[in-house]
């Protein structure tokens, strides 16, 4: 659904999004236009539909919602699950990743693994790694990907303090290069960058 006619600055636009689950309205009337260099956090209490909204925006949920989503640029989506295969090593997991974005060189993969502090674990079967290390393998994709739009669902879960700082630094670098980050998080995001908040209960972007 890449649309070339739209202005280049807009990376994703959504209009009048609404979702009902089990006869209950989660949210409605969400209008969103993401441009380059924006950092947006989706806010709302548990069960407000943050993850559902992110999945609709990513294109994973295709049925059962109302409204329209237009995606103009390649995106990188990181969900709750780390998509790491226990039988493969971290290196293989990244080299043969199902997301099929590009073919990465071995050097690029090693550099990304080093950046998430998995240097020395490249060839260990992933089932020997901890849950936090699985998350880190997944986060290594942020160093490999060229996608301008990042959709991150609770990226700070199961990451230690140092990992959070590194992730925030990576997000800042991405934003400064003109990238866009849309994330859900229960933790405050400590990035020295203007943060926009999307409140699900009111549908307002502030």
């Amino acid at each position: 659904m890449v649309n070339d006619s739209a202005p280049v600055a807009v990376v994703l636009s959504a209009s009048e999004l609404g979702l009902e689950r089990g006869g209950r309205e989660l949210f409605s009337g969400i209008n969103l236009q993401l441009t380059r260099g924006q950092l947006v956090q989706i806010e709302g209490p548990n069960g407000a539909g943050k993850t559902s909204l992110l999945r609709i925006l990513a294109g994973l949920s295709r049925y059962g919602f109302t409204g329209q989503v237009e995606r103009h640029v390649p995106q990188l989506f990181l969900g709750h699950q780390s998509a790491v295969k226990g039988l493969l090593t971290p290196r293989e997991n990244l080299a043969w990743h199902v997301a099929g974005e590009s073919s990465f060189t071995a050097a690029a993969i090693d550099a990304a693994l080093a950046a998430v502090e998995l240097y020395g674990y490249e060839d260990v079967p992933s089932h020997a790694l901890s849950a936090g290390q699985h998350r880190r393998v997944n986060l290594a994709r942020l160093y490999l990907s060229q996608a301008p739009l990042w959709l991150l669902d609770e990226p700070f879960t199961a990451i230690d303090r140092g990992g959070v700082v590194a992730l925030e630094a990576r997000m800042l670098a991405h934003l400064e290069q003109g990238g866009t980050v849309l994330l859900t998080s229960h933790q405050p995001v400590a990035v020295a960058y203007p943060l926009l908040r999307l409140d699900l209960t009111t549908g307002q972007l502030q």
Binding site: A58, F77, Q81, S82, K85, V98, A99, G100, E101
Partner: peptide, 12 residues
């Protein structure tokens, strides 16, 4: 179960 499938579906 491990989330690979959603990545596959988003693959360009």
């Amino acid at each position: 179960e491990d989330g690979s499938l959603e990545q596959l579906l988003l693959a360009p």
